[in-house]
Simulated assay, not measured.
Amino acid sequence: MASLPLVLAFLTLSISRPILAADNSQLQDFCVADTTSNIFVNGFVCKNPSLVTEDDFFFAGLGKPGDTANQLGSNVTPANVVQIPGLNTLGISLVRIDFAPYGVIPPHEHPRASEILAVTEGTLSVGFVTSNPENKLFSKVLRAGDVFVFPQGLVHFQMNTGMTKAVAISALSSQNPGVVTVANAVFGSKPAISSQVLQRAFQLDEKTVRMLQAKFWMNN
Rank of each mutant, 00 (worst) to 15 (best):
T164W: 00
F148A: 03
S139H: 12
S131I: 11
V126A: 08
V141K: 10
S114L: 06
K165C: 02
R112E: 05
I193K: 05
A166N: 05
Y102A: 09
S195P: 04
G178V: 11
G145N: 10
G153L: 00
Q158W: 02
A183E: 07
L172A: 02
H108F: 10
H156G: 01
A166P: 03
P191R: 12
A166W: 02
F150H: 07
A144P: 04
A168C: 03
V129P: 08
V147T: 10
F99T: 09
F157N: 08
G103S: 07
A171S: 15
T130P: 06
Q152W: 02
L124Y: 02
V167I: 10
V149N: 13
N184C: 02
L124M: 06
V141Q: 10
I105T: 15
E115A: 11
E121R: 15
S194P: 00
G162C: 08
N184E: 05
R112G: 01
L172N: 00
V179D: 11
A100R: 06
A100L: 12
V126R: 00
S125N: 13
P111W: 06
S173M: 03
N184Q: 11
Q158G: 08
S174Q: 05
K190Q: 15
S194Y: 03
P191I: 11
V149S: 14
I105C: 12
G153S: 03
A183Y: 01
L154I: 10
K165F: 08
V141S: 11
A185Q: 07
D146P: 03
V182F: 14
G127D: 05
N135L: 15
F157P: 08
F157K: 07
I116G: 10
P151C: 12
L137Y: 03
V180W: 04
F138Y: 13
P101M: 05
P133E: 05
F148T: 01
S173W: 01
E121H: 15
F128Y: 15
S195R: 08
F157V: 10
V149W: 12
F99C: 08
V119Q: 02
S194W: 04
P101F: 02
S125V: 03
S195N: 12
S174T: 05
I116S: 13
S195C: 07
T123W: 00
G188W: 07
L172G: 00
S173V: 01
F138I: 13
A166T: 07
T164M: 07
T120N: 07
P101R: 05
N184I: 02
F128N: 04
V155S: 09
Q158K: 09
E109N: 15
G145R: 09
T164D: 12
E115Q: 14
N176Y: 12
K136Y: 12
S195F: 07
H108V: 07
H110M: 05
Q158A: 15
H110N: 11
V182S: 14
L142K: 04
V180K: 12
T123D: 03
K136F: 12
A192C: 03
F128T: 06
I116H: 10
P151W: 08
N160P: 13
P106N: 04
L137I: 14
S131N: 14
A192L: 06
P133K: 07
N160M: 13
L172E: 00
V180S: 12
T164Q: 13
H108W: 06
E121N: 15
N184A: 04
N176E: 13
A118T: 15
L124R: 00
